[in-house]
């Protein structure tokens, strides 16, 4: 659990607060997405958690420990960190980059090698990349290496500053889904920064919308999208928030028992309602069959979609 208690940060006396009396609790195993306009204090908030920045006021606890009281060097080895500019070590190979924290922790070479291979595949790159140097990779590939490096020692806490920012939309969605799958398997407490509200909705158990150093709304994606607290949040999440909200639900959880009729379109059980609605519109139908492994398991009606 990460607890931020009335935390403020001022860079230099008298300057405006970059983070202003911010309080937030990130429960164990949950992912919180920090979103907000440029300069609103997202990176600063994140860097205070692993003590790269000392708060001017307030207290931050990670796993029951006050971060001011721990040895920062040891403490940071248990926190995966993806910086906004990736920051790969250009004099080290990709393998050495990914294996940096395991090496600090004293893992033996064969274990590091196995872990490197596992991770490079996890982020969708070929193992042949391991012997390359960062300059020999594209920006998007480097960013994936940055994520792999943060995951290397399997830290219980992850801080990620725009981890998928430079990756093309298709690979990005795939990586987000992979990442969500990883998070389901291994419980991690994650704070991630993003500019992309869709990414926040896809990955966040909770979303914190920030503005000028303060959290304007801290809620589940469902609540943020259905009940934005003010015009700022409403604007930020976009006019299509009702559609975005549909992507939070899967067809299998909203469908009714299969009926006799054969609908004009089919979706699988894990299709989200936004895509299912799109399928209805495309087929000009008011219902779709939900089919898993060749068997019709339910029927999803437009009324049911509209009712969520």
């Amino acid at each position: 659990m990460i607890t931020m208690n009335h935390v403020s940060k001022r860079f230099g006396d008298g300057s405006a607060a970059a983070v202003d009396d911010l309080s937030m609790v990130v429960p164990d195993g949950e992912t919180v997405a920090l979103v907000g306009p440029s300069g609103c204090g997202k990176t600063t908030t994140m860097r205070m958690i692993n003590r790269l920045i000392e708060p001017t006021e307030g207290r931050i606890m990670v796993a029951g420990e006050d971060v001011r009281k721990v040895d920062p060097v040891q403490f940071r080895r248990r926190i995966g960190y993806v910086i906004q500019q990736v920051g790969l070590f250009s004099h080290m190979t990709i393998a050495q980059n990914i294996g940096a924290v395991p090496k600090l922790l004293g893992w033996d070479a064969s274990k590091i090698k196995r872990r490197n291979e596992e991770l490079i595949e996890l982020v969708g790159l070929d193992t042949s990349m391991l012997s390359r140097y960062p300059r020999q990779l594209s920006g998007g590939q480097r960013q994936r290496v940055g994520v792999a490096r943060a995951l290397a020692a399997d830290p219980p806490v992850l801080l990620m500053d725009e981890p998928f920012g430079a990756i093309d939309p298709i690979a990005r969605t795939r990586l987000q889904n992979e990442f969500r799958a990883i998070l389901r398997r291994v419980k991690k407490t994650v704070v991630m920064v993003t500019h992309d509200i869709d990414e926040a909705v896809r990955l966040g158990d909770r979303i914190a919308i920030m503005r000028a150093g303060k959290i304007v709304q801290y809620d589940t994606p469902d609540t943020i999208l259905s009940r934005p607290v003010d015009g700022f949040v409403e604007n930020f999440v976009g006019a299509d928030r009702a559609l975005k909200r549909l992507s939070l639900f899967e067809a299998r959880n909203v469908m009714s028992a299969p009926d006799e009729a054969v609908a004009k379109a089919q979706v699988s059980g894990d299709t989200d309602l936004r895509d299912a609605l799109a399928a209805m519109i495309a087929a000009d139908a008011d219902r779709v069959d939900v089919v898993d492994e060749g068997t019709k398991v339910g029927t999803l009606t437009r009324e049911a979609v509209f009712a969520v």
């Binding site: 248990r78 910086i83 940096a100």
Partner: peptide, 10 residues
């Protein structure tokens, strides 16, 4: 950025 990443990883 390399220094920041190195510091951040411990």
């Amino acid at each position: 950025d390399a220094v920041e990443a190195a510091t951040g990883m411990g």
